[in-house]
Measured scan of single mutants.
Amino acid sequence: AVSDRLIGRKGVVMEAISPQNSALVKVDGETWRATSGTVLDVGEEVSVKAIEGVKLVVEKLE
């Protein structure tokens, strides 16, 4: 799938994300809905860990 190429890519949080709420991230110039197990604020850099349906699963870039 096209989205599989995004695993391992870096992105930027466009809307705050919490474990209860998905929000938008920008990866390679494209906007995607994403979820995370932690709270992520706007502007934080993230890494794509997986794809669940049409959502990216991201975590904060260390």
Rank of each mutant, 00 (worst) to 15 (best):
V13S: 02
I51W: 05
S47G: 06
L6S: 01
E30F: 07
V12C: 10
G53L: 04
V58L: 02
S3G: 10
V2Y: 09
I51L: 07
V13C: 04
S22E: 15
V13P: 01
P19L: 10
V12W: 04
S47N: 09
L6Q: 03
V27N: 01
L61N: 07
A50Q: 05
G8R: 00
E44A: 10
L56T: 03
T31S: 11
M14V: 14
D4E: 12
K55Q: 14
N21P: 04
E44N: 09
L6K: 03
M14I: 14
G43I: 01
V12A: 03
K10Y: 07
A50C: 08
D41N: 14
G43A: 03
V42C: 06
G53H: 03
E15K: 06
D4F: 00
T35W: 06
A23W: 15
S18C: 11
G11W: 00
V46F: 06
G53P: 02
V54C: 15
D28T: 01
I51Q: 04
D28I: 02
G29R: 01
V2K: 09
S36V: 05
D4C: 14
T38A: 10
G11H: 01
E45I: 14
S36I: 04
K55H: 14
V42Q: 06
V25N: 00
D4N: 12
R33L: 15
S3I: 11
V2M: 12
I17T: 15
V27F: 04
L61T: 09
G29F: 02
R33H: 15
V54Y: 11
G43D: 04
G43M: 03
E45A: 10
M14L: 13
Q20S: 12
T35R: 05
V13H: 01
D4H: 13
V39I: 11
A23T: 08
V25L: 00
I7H: 03
D4P: 10
I17K: 13
V27I: 13
T35Y: 07
M14D: 03
D4W: 00
R5F: 07
I17L: 13
G43Q: 03
A16R: 13
M14Q: 06
E45V: 13
G8D: 04
V27L: 06
V58A: 02
K10G: 04
P19H: 12
L56Y: 00
L61V: 12
V57A: 03
G11M: 02
V25T: 01
E30Y: 06
A50H: 06
V42N: 02
V13Y: 03
E30S: 04
R9P: 02
V46C: 04
V39M: 12
G37A: 14
G43R: 01
S3A: 12
V42K: 07
S18Q: 08
E45R: 09
V39N: 12
R5K: 10
L40V: 06
D41L: 14
E59M: 04
E30P: 07
V27C: 05
L24W: 11
T35D: 08
A34S: 07
G37W: 09
W32P: 09
A23F: 15
E59Q: 07
I51D: 02
E59T: 07
P19C: 13
E52K: 08
L24V: 08
S22D: 15
V48F: 00
A16P: 11
V42L: 06
K10A: 07
E59N: 04
I51T: 05
G43V: 02
